[in-house]
């Protein structure tokens, strides 16, 4: 639907509409929290059952890439927050620029993730496709990598969706900023921050267990 000035009839005003949309995004995020929640539950069950296996598995991950990706995501979140902050008719170029920056960082994240997957493949650490880790902790390590791949793949999927949304918004903002877009930007930013936070949890669970002092 074109961005008509009139508010859809179920709303009384533009701000009514925008607040409603934001509430919608929050409820959606609640859903997402439970989506990852189920996965994390499985992680904790198995980490409890195979503590050594998980630590060993974790040591075989690429901490450098993981850390770099964390930094990348945090920066992109910052750019998005900035874009929300300065959004207005005058600054639309800057806004679009910031969003583009965030998009590039998001793409960089995906790229690095791809490299990481590739390295794991080379090391024969992909359960179900090529998993040759043998020796004492094979089971735990395999369960760890199953979690690793599922969780990061779902996260990457969220990233891709987020990048798509940001791209649409960047184009729209460049064209003509309006309060309507401001609300949309706000919601998408919420989503992007959420994806970021999920990553921080995943980072801690995937890369750190094998590297804490012990």
């Amino acid at each position: 639907m074109p961005d008509s000035p009139a508010v859809a009839p179920q709303f009384t005003s533009a701000s009514h509409r925008d607040e409603t949309a934001e509430l919608g995004m929050w409820v959606f995020i609640a859903t997402e929290v439970l989506l990852f929640g189920g996965l994390l539950l499985a992680y904790f069950v198995y980490r409890h059952a195979y503590p050594q296996g998980f630590v060993t598995g974790s040591r075989h991950t690429e901490i450098v890439i993981g850390t770099a990706n964390t930094a990348i995501l945090l920066t992109s979140s910052f750019l998005v927050a900035w874009a929300v902050e300065i959004f207005s008719a005058e600054t639309r170029r800057l806004t679009a620029g910031l969003l583009t920056g965030a998009i590039c960082l998001g793409l960089a994240f995906i790229l690095l993730k791809g490299i990481e997957y590739h390295r794991e493949y080379d090391e024969h650490l992909v359960p179900g496709i090529d998993f040759r880790f043998t020796g004492s902790l094979a089971n735990g390590v395999q369960l760890f990598f199953i979690f690793y791949f599922i969780a990061t793949a779902i996260h990457a999927l969220h990233m891709i969706i987020g990048i798509g949304l940001l791209a649409v918004l960047a184009l729209l903002c460049r064209a003509a900023p309006s309060t309507r877009r401001r609300a949309a930007l706000h919601s998408v930013a919420l989503y992007w921050h959420f994806v970021d936070i999920v990553w921080i949890f995943l980072f801690a669970l995937i890369y750190l267990p094998g590297r804490s002092a012990s």
């Binding site: 195979y50 296996g53 004492s136 902790l137 089971n139």
Partner: peptide, 13 residues
């Protein structure tokens, strides 16, 4: 079946 899950003390796995 899962010899590594519990290693007897004093033995190598």
């Amino acid at each position: 079946l899962l010899p590594r899950s519990q290693i007897a003390a004093g033995y190598e796995p």
